[in-house]
Computed example of a mutant assay.
Amino acid sequence: MAKSWLWCLSLLALAHRGHCQAVAPPKLSDPCNSRRYQDSLVTRYIENGAHRYSYNDPRWTQYCDSLLAVCPTVAYAYQQKAVPLIKDGRYAEAFALENRAAELDPPQWLAYRGFLKCIFTKDYEGALLDFQQVARLKPGSREMDHTYPFFEGLCNLELGNLQRAEANFKEDIRQQKGPDGTHDVHFNTLFYVGVLYLELKNYPQAKSYLAQCLQAYPQHPEANYYLGRTYQAQGDEATAQRYLLAAQKALASGYRLNEDNIYYANYPRQITDYEIRRALR
């Protein structure tokens, strides 16, 4: 009989223990998982903190570090911390941060990393992978005022994949023109398509696209230069010299490609006065 009572008491104890476990209060969730909380940290440490100073000021980085100490999963803080490093050419350090930002928020930062690879570090294969991946996440989107196929076209142009570059630029133009086909095409798309056709020795097409670029932006130094080189390739030295001199004048007057970050990195096929003087010999 005593054994029966002990057995019953054991069952009651187990039942009571299980009941207590079932009603135990749940653990509080990590506030860093809340977008609203992350945004509040960005406002406090970035918008009202780092952005009050130049990115060359140590306090810029200190504010980014302060945010990450509170919440190490805010992608924007990594991207902002990388800004001074990118501008200073410290790419290895910068990309450790850019990689973390792209890992935490691919739709937001993958295309930006592709842009940096294409323009700053000339990692064209890596940039292609980034733009192809983000195009699946955000089809039809843009980065730095350009479509993803624009940057893919630049990468393939520089890699010598000219047929792929041609297909990329055609898609870039299609996206820019929009569903009704009436929107303007960026003058630098026209410029790079002209360069592509010069590479392909399709001189009529090269002249057509470079002339369209100059119609939109007459002082475009590179478009004038490469149009001059196109005429040189056809043996028309008089016309070539006119465009080469126009390129030289435009550069001397301060005209440039008019792209973001133009003062921190050279864009593909960007020229200096040295190239113009050599072509004028």
Rank of each mutant, 00 (worst) to 15 (best):
R59E: 11
F120Q: 05
G49C: 03
L97H: 04
P149A: 10
P106Q: 05
Y37N: 11
V134Y: 01
R229W: 00
D65P: 09
Y63D: 01
G235V: 05
N261C: 05
Y274N: 14
Q175G: 05
H186Y: 02
Q108E: 13
L14Q: 03
F169L: 03
G126H: 06
Q132G: 12
Y91A: 00
F95M: 07
Y255H: 15
Q38W: 09
Y124M: 13
Y91S: 09
E125M: 12
S66G: 06
Y255L: 05
Y63H: 09
R100T: 02
R17S: 12
F150I: 03
A50L: 11
K170Y: 08
G228P: 09
C71M: 04
Q62V: 02
L200G: 03
K122E: 12
P107N: 01
A223F: 10
Q270I: 07
A22G: 10
Q163P: 10
C213G: 00
D184R: 09
R90E: 10
A127Y: 10
R90N: 07
S208T: 03
E103K: 00
Y264D: 06
E237G: 12
R90H: 07
T230E: 00
A265G: 03
A13L: 07
A165D: 02
A2I: 14
P106H: 05
P58N: 03
R242C: 12
A50P: 11
S34L: 01
Q80C: 07
A135R: 07
L85P: 04
K3A: 11
C64K: 06
Q79Y: 15
Y76S: 14
M144G: 00
C20S: 14
C118W: 09
S29T: 13
Y226S: 00
N168F: 14
L251D: 06
L214A: 06
N161E: 12
D57Y: 11
P107D: 01
V185N: 07
Y63C: 05
F151V: 02
V70E: 15
S40T: 11
S10D: 10
H220K: 00
C8W: 13
S253A: 14
A211W: 08
L159Q: 09
N168M: 15
D39V: 08
A94P: 08
S66V: 01
K117C: 05
E275L: 14
T73Y: 06
A96M: 08
L129R: 13
D130P: 04
Y209G: 10
H19M: 02
F151C: 02
H19R: 07
A246N: 15
Q241V: 12
A216M: 04
K27I: 13
P218E: 06
P26N: 02
Q108R: 10
T73D: 06
S253H: 08
K138S: 08
Q270A: 10
G140N: 02
P139H: 05
Q108S: 15
Y124P: 11
L67Y: 05
K122T: 09
S34D: 07
